[in-house]
């Protein structure tokens, strides 16, 4: 399974990762090797096997509908690179 430079560009954008153009060829090579490695799974017959969604033997726990959290604006914003008037601030988004 070979992965080309264009695909690297595409998935890097999907993942919002800036990858230098100079890096793309070597990355494509490394990723292709990994894909070849994982392609071994094709040898396993999985007909009729349910995919595993969880290893936990317990049903999904549910919590009561009670307000137990929030009211911590300062903590929420404390690590923000930029904030003002209670908001997170980011470069302008154009819809």
């Amino acid at each position: 399974m070979a992965l080309d430079k264009a695909t690297v560009t595409k998935i890097a954008h999907l993942a919002r990762l800036r990858v230098a153009d100079s890096e793309k060829d070597s990355l494509a090579g490394e990723l292709s090797n990994i894909l070849t490695f994982i392609a071994q799974l094709d040898q396993v017959d999985t007909t009729g096997v349910e995919p595993m969604t969880s290893v936990v033997a317990m049903p999904l726990p549910r919590r009561p509908d009670v307000v137990t959290d929030g009211h911590q604006q300062a903590d929420v914003l404390k690590n923000a690179p930029e904030s003002t008037a209670g908001f997170f601030v980011i470069p302008k988004v154009i819809e």
Binding site: I38, V44, P51
Partner: peptide, 14 residues
């Protein structure tokens, strides 16, 4: 081909 297949193999490993 990848994720779902892997989760099936995972079930077999378990």
């Amino acid at each position: 081909a990848y994720y779902l297949k892997a989760q099936r193999v995972r079930a077999l490993i378990a």
